[in-house]
Design a protein around this nucleic acid. Sequence first.
DNA 1: ATCCGCGCTGAGCGCTCGCTTACACTGCTG
DNA 2: CAGCAGTGTAAGCGAGCGCTCAGCGCGGAT
Lengths: 212, 212
Amino acid sequence: MSGIPSAGPQPADLWPEVQPDAARRLMLAGVESFARRGYHATTTRDIAATAGMSPAALYVHFPSKAALLFTISRSGHEQVLGLAQQAIDEAGDPATAIHDLVERFTTWHAQRHTIARVVQYELEALPEQEYGVVASLRKDIERLVRDVLDRGVADGVFTVGDAGTAARAVLSLGVDVARWYTDRSRLTPEELGREYGHLVLRMLGAATGERP
Amino acid sequence: MSGIPSAGPQPADLWPEVQPDAARRLMLAGVESFARRGYHATTTRDIAATAGMSPAALYVHFPSKAALLFTISRSGHEQVLGLAQQAIDEAGDPATAIHDLVERFTTWHAQRHTIARVVQYELEALPEQEYGVVASLRKDIERLVRDVLDRGVADGVFTVGDAGTAARAVLSLGVDVARWYTDRSRLTPEELGREYGHLVLRMLGAATGERP
DNA sequence: ATCCGCGCTGAGCGCTCGCTTACACTGCTG
DNA sequence: CAGCAGTGTAAGCGAGCGCTCAGCGCGGAT
């Protein structure tokens, strides 16, 4: 159905547009630290040390530790939203759309599992206003999936008891990948994405013409 | 297939065996605080205030804040392991076993979503030794699911590309419920459990004799 | 040659953290 | 009644936190 080539597993080329270079290094260091220990257990000294700078350097580029998290989180959510939207736009029918969306969504969460962990599990640490921005992006993503599911049910390709619950389940599978996937996991991000795309179609009652 | 009656949505009767009463109130306060803000963002003063005591009272019953988390986490993991084991023991075949396991697992995570959040998402805050104990319980749970899946594949009732990946997916669905479920969610824990039990059977390629 | 402004640092401020200590109250036991 | 174990508190210690600030080095414009 889709078959996206891997963009490379390293996050080195994340945020190529962020200027100056030091700000990007701080974001990278923040992702690393937040993912490993969690936002609240991470100190600004940790982040600075990982980025090879003094603690005060953080405040030259970001007004606060929370603002650094927000920049990371918003960017990640925008990437995911874009990737979901693209999968839907490029697909002709709901089954292909859901399949490709799940495949790319899952692959992204496995490939970028460090940033994905921050994106999915540290958003409650955001200040109220910033949280609102991110929450709105999350609603957009859920709405996208929900709408495709509704179309599929209307077309008779999906059979689900409750579309809202099914949408949650579809996203849950991909989101949870960020929790358990590591670089030592047996399947590559692409293999996992393909497998999950398949599982989800079956879960939704869409015949995929398979047999072992 | 199963149909477990709800044990009551309130966690008031959790840990009825914990003595003295003040220790249980502290655990309850800890669960509440850890779930809402996360372990590291929770202060011992928060916990004590929620339990209606002075900060020093915590140390009468627990040697440290981390020990309180450990007590909560271990107990929760033991409950989940027990519930999974029981579902398997009571079922005659792999399909029924997986269905009932997912149903009870999901219902538990929705009904006890506050403690489930702590159990599933705060374990990395545990000290190394305590983490080991909990990690071992988690391995037991995963092994349980994995074994049932293997049996089902051998019997020809399940069709999956990779049993390990499928086991992860099955557990992911239930675990992630703790992240998004709230008391205001549209489906009751029991309804959600039934729906997820159904979805998982279909995901595993087990015909359930359904049609809308 | 001088100046400016950006990127960065060393030092440290004010505060809150987990936890300890000294002590008080209660009810039970001899 | 004295003694004691169990349960609680008020006060506060030392450490580490997020963040600030005065100043420094340096490349480019004047």
